[in-house]
Write a protein that binds this DNA or RNA. Structure first.
Lengths: 229, 229
DNA sequence: GCCGCAAAGATCGCATTCAATTTTGCCTTG
DNA sequence: CAAGGCAAAATTGAATGCGATCTTTGCGGC
């Protein structure tokens, strides 16, 4: 039961981390050969990993044209955050109804780790900020909810990589701390309010300075093709 | 752009339909060879399709032990329906805020088709019942919401295949009609109430007569090993 | 008669190989 | 010199072969 890690699992995990930590930026092409070479395996394994990342929405695969790190549009970004608010409200509600006994401790220690990573300017901080929300979902005990939250959180990270300012942590740690306080008091109203505010803040941070290198070249260049300059 | 159907796409679609229409029952083993043979392709394509179905939660893949149609547990079933209520409430809210102009027509004509399939006792009716809810999600215009609803609806179908009575349509058509009425009146309260009732009804129908053919044969046979007969 | 072990069979993970499609560069032609 | 077309390179889609792992089954010892 220990060696149940297939190679494509390893590649999947590595690629995923690389994308979530913004080492691989949106739009980066991911040829199967290169991936296979760099990981020392064949294309088959790389392909398998890419297929799974695609159904996570982290990469886009176009037939006969290869895979690339997904480039969410602003429209998709709004969809993600809207749905994320819906799902995280559900998390909050459930946690206020029933919080595991050492749940608060787990949250606190996670935030501590976030602070450490942030002070060290580690790229881990980007991923840890997202994982705070996944930890919240885990405390509900619902496998499915964890799955879904993971999906929207991953996509949020991608959106921040695409639009947000470089190396900005996704979440303000202060807001995480406030949220923990509200949860400790089992106050669903306050907690929901903080969460909504928090997610809106993240969304604003994301849309702050849209570094526009759109997915479609023609669309971009159409703005540059009038006259000279 | 027409021949953009790769073979694994075709297999993926076929398997998915077969599962959702309950032709392939939960627990059925899906060896790569057999699938490749029956579809006239190699294991590679079959494998690719299976991986995608796995991330949809429709099949389970265990390393070195093969793939099989997923067998959701009762616990997972409750998670699915809980989350589904959360998501479908969101759909209802959005539709009451903004319903596309020919949305009602689309819903009505879909229900008509459901009725036709049901009268014909076609296995399509099972799938159509689920697709009513997907159509609702489509009317919101949010790709992501469509995705997520599709996931929970698919899993619901699987749950009904696993626990529900054979060939029962997933949804009562009457309830669909009532829901359309509430939506026509843009009444979010009534619509939500109907939807909640509807989903609870589906859930009850699912758990009605748990035909226990557990994954473990011994458990089943234990009921047959007392005395003779 | 029961338990453990080893060989056989089945199935999968992965690599290699072949085929199809897209892209790119070059050449011809008007 | 620009435009169109053709061929070569690159990249993916799919197939096949081999080794590894798990399951099953049959045998022998206790």
């Amino acid at each position: 039961m220990s060696t149940n890690l297939t190679r494509s699992d390893a590649i999947y995990a590595s690629l995923r981390r690389a994308i979530l930590e913004q080492a691989l930026k949106p739009g980066t092409k991911l040829p199967e050969d290169s991936i296979g070479d760099t990981f020392g395996v064949s294309r088959t394994s790389a392909r398998n990993a890419l297929v799974r990342l695609a159904s996570d929405g982290l990469v886009e695969i176009k037939p006969n044209r290869g895979a690339a790190v997904a480039m969410p549009t602003l429209e998709e970004a709004e969809e993600v955050f809207a749905l994320r608010r819906c799902l995280e409200r559900e998390v909050i509600e459930r946690l206020c109804k029933r919080m595991p006994k050492d749940g608060i401790d787990a949250l606190v220690s996670h935030v501590r780790e976030e602070e450490r990573a942030l002070r060290a300017s580690s790229p881990r901080s980007i991923r840890l900020a997202g994982e705070f929300h996944i930890l919240l979902a885990e405390l509900t005990g619902s496998k499915l909810l964890i799955d879904f939250i993971s999906q929207v959180v991953s996509r949020s990270s991608l959106i921040l990589a695409r639009f947000g300012r470089p190396h900005s942590a996704e979440c303000g740690i202060d807001e995480h701390i406030h949220l923990i306080e509200a949860l400790k008091n089992l106050d669903p109203v306050a907690a929901s309010r903080i969460m909504d505010h928090h997610l809106h803040a993240v969304e604003d941070r994301a849309k702050a300075d849209e570094k526009d290198d759109g997915p479609d070249i023609t669309e971009i260049l159409s703005r540059y093709m009038s006259a000279s300059e």
